[in-house]
C-alpha cells in the first residue's frame, strides 16, 4: 500500500517534466532524423541514453561520421556533470538500496528529474524514483518517436526551424543560473568565448566540434574552480 503511494506520488511529481520533455524530445527526433540517422535508431538513442545535451552532441557527431572513440569521449565529458548529481543523490536514497534498484535510480538522473527529487522532503525511495521517471521517460521517447517519423510529413521549413530548439533549451538553462551567480556567468562566458575563438581561428577551426567542446569545458570549469572555489555547502 505504502509502496504504491510512493510510486503514485513520484508519478504525480513527474507530470510537469513530461511537458518539457515532449517538445524537446520531438525537436531532437526531427533534428537527428533530418541529419540522416534512421528514425528507429534515433528512437533507440532516446531509449538508451535519456539525456539531452549528450544525445544531441552524440547524434551530431554520428551525422558528421566522427570516430566512435571521439563520440564516446565527448559524450562522457558532457555527462560528467551527472557525477555531482549522483553523489548528491547517494546521500538521499534509501540506505542499502539493492544494486539493481540503484541502477534504475541512476538511469533516472537527468537535470530536471534530479532537481525534482532533490526538492522532495525526506528519503527518496526506489518506488518514488520509479514513479518519477516513468512519465518523463515515456514523454522523451514518445516525443523523439513522433519527431523522427514526422520528418516524412512535416514541411521542410518547420523541420529546419526546429534545429534551434535544443540550443534554445541550453540558453534557457544557462541564463537564469548566470543571473544568480557571477561565477557561473564568468565560467559560461569564458566557455562561449573560447568556443567562438576555435570557430573563427584558421587551423583551430579544423578541430572537430567534440574536442572543441571538451577543451572549452575543461578550460572554463578549471578557471571557475580556481578563481571561484565554492565553500562547503550542499553538493547540488
Amino acid at each position: 500500500m505504502n509502496t504504491l503511494n510512493q510510486f503514485n506520488q513520484g508519478l504525480r511529481d513527474g507530470v510537469p517534466v513530461i511537458f518539457g520533455y515532449l517538445p524537446v524530445g520531438f525537436a531532437f527526433g526531427v533534428t537527428a532524423a533530418a541529419g540522416g540517422i534512421p528514425p528507429w535508431l534515433v528512437v533507440l538513442i532516446s531509449l538508451t541514453n535519456f539525456t539531452s545535451a549528450g544525445q544531441l552532441m552524440g547524434a551530431t557527431l554520428i551525422i558528421a561520421g566522427a570516430p566512435i572513440f571521439e563520440i564516446a569521449v565527448t559524450t562522457l565529458i558532457i555527462n560528467i556533470r551527472y557525477v555531482i548529481m549522483s553523489m548528491s543523490f547517494s546521500q538521499r536514497i534509501t540506505p542499502n538500496m539493492p544494486i539493481l534498484e540503484k541502477m534504475v535510480a541512476a538511469f533516472a538522473i537527468t537535470d530536471e528529474i534530479f532537481t525534482v527529487a532533490s526538492l522532495k522532503k525526506g528519503e527518496v525511495s526506489f518506488n518514488y524514483i520509479s514513479g518519477l521517471v516513468t512519465g518523463p521517460y515515456f514523454g522523451w521517447s514518445l516525443g523523439t518517436l513522433l519527431g523522427a517519423y514526422a520528418t516524412k510529413i512535416l514541411p521542410l521549413a518547420i523541420q529546419q526551424s526546429m534545429g534551434i530548439a535544443l540550443y534554445a533549451m541550453f540558453i534557457a538553462l544557462i541564463i537564469p543560473a548566470a543571473r544568480e551567480s557571477l561565477a557561473v556567468m564568468v565560467v559560461a562566458g569564458i566557455s562561449v568565448c573560447a568556443s567562438i575563438i576555435f570557430k573563427v581561428t584558421p587551423l583551430l577551426d579544423t578541430l572537430s566540434s567534440g574536442y572543441v567542446i571538451m577543451i572549452c569545458t575543461i578550460l572554463a570549469a578549471a578557471f571557475g574552480a580556481y578563481f571561484f572555489p565554492r565553500e562547503e555547502e550542499d553538493l547540488t
Binding site: A53, I84, F170, G224
Partner: peptide
Amino acid sequence: KYIRSFLHYIPFAVLGAMAFPGI
C-alpha cells in the same frame, strides 16, 4: 573543494560551449 567546484561548473561550461556559436 577545487574538484567539487570544477564538477559544479562543468554543466554551465558545457552548455555555453555547445550553445555558442553552434546556435
